[in-house]
Amino acid sequence: MEIVFALAVGILAGSGIYLLLRPRTFQVIMGLSLLAYSVNLFIFAMGRLRMGAAPIIDPARGSDPALYADPVPQALVLTAIVISFATTALFLVVLLASRGLNGTDHVDGREPDQE
């Protein structure tokens, strides 16, 4: 389980970083969103992987922390997901504005001469 999870994090991050280094704004957006998945999973993994132990207290079983998954990384990731949506929206609008102003979707705001 752990190895698959780790590989998933790695593949998402690798694809994201590759796209981050690309010249077109849409690629960078996609890269950021893949990287966000990867980082969110990574932070989530800091609480270790537990199955069938959602951090919702069952009054019948009591609130022994050993019975439930770690809630802190989950709370962190939950806000991170929403913020990454806001970032994506902001970046999308910036890239649209840049495209409208500069006539190109290159990240530098102008077409490089060799292309």
Binding site: E2, I3, F5, A6, L7, V9, G10, I11, L12, A13, G14, S15, G16, I17, Y18, L21, R22, S38, L41, F42, A45, M46, G47, R48, L49, D70
Partner: peptide
């Protein structure tokens, strides 16, 4: 960039696995 991204991805995967194989 592919090489760099692969290195980063492998690195992150390795760190994740290293964490997951340690007790909480």
């Amino acid at each position: 960039d592919i090489l760099l991204a692969t290195a980063c991805g492998l690195g992150l995967a390795a760190i994740t696995y290293a964490v997951l194989t340690r007790p909480p």
